[in-house]
Design a protein around this nucleic acid. Structure first.
Lengths: 201, 201
DNA sequence: GTCTATAGCCTGATAGAC
DNA sequence: GTCTATCAGGCTATAGAC
């Protein structure tokens, strides 16, 4: 009930939340300003009070969707223990993270497809650089014969591709519902990599 | 110089080729019928002589971009040799295939994001089922303790994610131009999996 | 801070001449 | 088989009342 917080709904935040939904579902050019305003229960013109134009709204939405992700992902690698334990831990936590915020993953995929250089550079430095560095440091200990940059990408791809292909996997031979379970995915990735991890010599 | 083929430019094919470019670059809703007609040097109205509407043009474009891919990918797994040789061969060929037709990969990614159930079901059965089956059969011989469906997805993801992340990798620590070289990617994936392959017991 | 009204342009699609 | 002309509606964005 304090004067500045709570109680009053922050329209800006409502817009960002709905915009995140819609941009994830349909992409930038698949969503109109009217669509976003509509799901917020306001007129399109009112939206321009909060954001100067559609592009700025999109950028603010990305910032909203991507903020704190750097911390979340990086945190996932800072656990103590042996390299193998830390990797196992990372796989489990990263998988859960991606399963818990599917819109973040989808928006990231869309940015990889449509983002201009400036946006990607910003995302790389502000969001992914720190956690990526943590992962390369980790895998360097485990598999020194591999290029750490490539191995970090491989590790992420190994996990993310299962989510990415979920819509089509159900129509492919052997596809089961359980293959979408983050725990099953994590276990599979760990099993696949286990031999690689066991003999670092 | 025969009467029915060559010589005369097939407008329909020109449209499909240009549509493939544009849909890959900007997605379905990021491209207008006028845009496509423009790159073909014709008016938008003329395009409707060849396709009933935009949706049909898009579907025809997917068919054009995806046709023969089933053969190409499946072919890549039919080489003779030991399981390990065949896997190594598959990795090299699949990587080259994806590097040679980046628009196919991009359109596939867009379909995974935006495709409705019907389209994905069709793509799964007409394009990916056969080669996917070939891959699961292969990996089943190599790593019987893994779920073949999941392992096939992992294998594809391991390769594709390097292409998918190319736009942002250059801004991430340790990123080099050589990481985009299909030969380097294939070698990396093989090295990563080599320990897993060596002791199938 | 939200509304109505509207400008100006782009959209998918059609009609009909050639 | 391509063109011009056009429609009806959607788009982003602005103006100005409340």
């Amino acid at each position: 009930m304090s004067s500045k917080s709570a109680k009053k709904i922050d329209t800006r935040l409502v817009i960002l939340r709905n915009a995140k939904h819609l941009f994830a579902q349909h992409g930038y050019s698949g969503v109109s300003v009217r669509d976003i305003a509509g799901t917020c229960g306001i007129q399109a013109a009112s939206l321009y009070h909060h954001f100067p134009d559609k592009q700025a709204l999109y950028l603010a939405t990305m910032e909203y969707a991507f903020s704190d992700k750097a911390d979340e992902i990086a945190e996932v690698t800072t656990i103590a223990g042996s390299p193998k334990e830390r990797l196992s831990d990372f796989i489990g936590r990263f998988t859960t993270l991606m399963a818990d915020d599917p819109e973040f993953r989808i928006l990231l995929q869309r940015e990889l497809l449509d983002g201009d250089e400036e946006r990607l550079k910003l995302a790389a430095h502000e969001v992914f650089e720190r956690p990526f560095k943590a992962i390369t440091d980790l895998v360097e200990e485990i598999a020194p014969e591999c290029d750490p940059h490539m191995l970090a990408i491989s590790l992420a791809g190994l996990i993310l591709f299962h989510f990415e292909t979920a819509p089509i996997r159900r129509y492919l031979p052997g596809g089961k519902k359980s293959h979408n379970d983050p725990k099953v995915i994590a276990e599979h990735v760990l099993t696949l990599l286990s031999r690689t991890l066991e003999s670092p010599q």
